[in-house]
């Protein structure tokens, strides 16, 4: 569903990603693991078209989205839950979701469906996003991305700084999305959280691919993680 083909990305003169390739199938969760500064967030931004590619290609459902201007990427069915949530802070919950709906011309049915996953947001409907609690903000950020009926969902540290009950709620939603056939690319720091949901794990270092292994292999042999993350 999502294919990243040998992309090279730089901030100014500092090259961050080098020939990085990833592949996520529909109904699969691929987790990106790497040390700080390995290029995980950069990979997500590059997929969204927010950073220009020096070379390489990003393909979603057979369509090369990297050839299109950045604002067309969500229309191709890519939902993005960025690190730090990045809500439209002064807008209400309703307005944040309206922007998500508009991105792919989704209708009321989609919204109802999303609110079923996050009933709490209905109670906060006309509250400003910045007045929500951390967990509610993460729910809203996720709901906003789900509003565009994504085929591909990018989640950048969705459980960062959340209490355990909230982490569990987010985890369940991710699993539901997998069952619905969404291709999910997940960046997560905590290895145990990764192993509880991921199907495959891609290790990256200095913007390059190391190995990509199935989560079962890691569960069987934990030394793989230590070898690549060096804790």
């Amino acid at each position: 569903m999502l294919e990243v083909k040998a992309i090279n990305v730089a901030y100014g003169k500092a090259q961050v990603l080098r020939d990085l390739s990833l592949r996520v199938e529909a109904g699969e969760i691929l987790c990106l693991l790497g040390r700080n500064g390995a290029g995980k967030t950069t990979t997500m931004k590059a997929i969204m078209g927010l950073l220009p590619l020096m070379s390489g290609q990003v393909v979603v459902a057979g369509e090369a989205i990297s050839d299109q201007p950045p604002h067309k990427v969500p229309g191709a069915g890519v939902g993005y839950v960025p690190q730090g949530r990045r809500l439209f802070s002064e807008l209400t919950v309703a307005q944040n979701l309206e922007i998500g709906l508009a991105a792919n011309r989704s209708g009321q049915a989609v919204l109802d469906n999303v609110l079923e996953l996050f009933p709490r947001l209905r109670e906060r409907w006309s509250q400003r996003a910045q007045t929500l609690s951390g967990g509610e903000q993460q729910m809203l950020a996720t709901a906003r991305a789900l509003c565009l009926q994504p085929k591909v969902l990018l989640l950048d540290e969705p459980t960062e700084g959340l209490q355990p009950s909230m982490i569990e709620a987010i985890r369940q939603v991710i699993t539901v999305m997998r069952e619905r056939g969404v291709a999910i690319l997940l960046v997560e720091q905590r290895v145990d959280a990764v192993l509880s949901v991921a199907d495959r794990v891609a290790f990256i270092e200095n913007g390059r691919n190391l190995e990509t292994v199935s989560a079962d292999e890691i569960r069987a042999d934990h030394s793989i993680v230590e070898r690549h993350l060096g804790v």
Binding site: M48, G49, L50, P69, P70, H71, K72, V73, P74, G75, Y80, P82, R86, L87, F88, S89, E90, L91, Q95, E98, I99, G100, A102, A103, N104, R144, L148
Partner: peptide, 24 residues
């Protein structure tokens, strides 16, 4: 209005506006 909403969203976070399909 819808266009006002898009303008305010762009004002608040340009990158996220792009990531949600607003033709910035």
């Amino acid at each position: 209005t819808r266009i006002g909403l898009l303008m305010r969203a762009t004002q608040l976070d340009r990158e996220m506006a792009l990531a949600f399909g607003i033709p910035v």
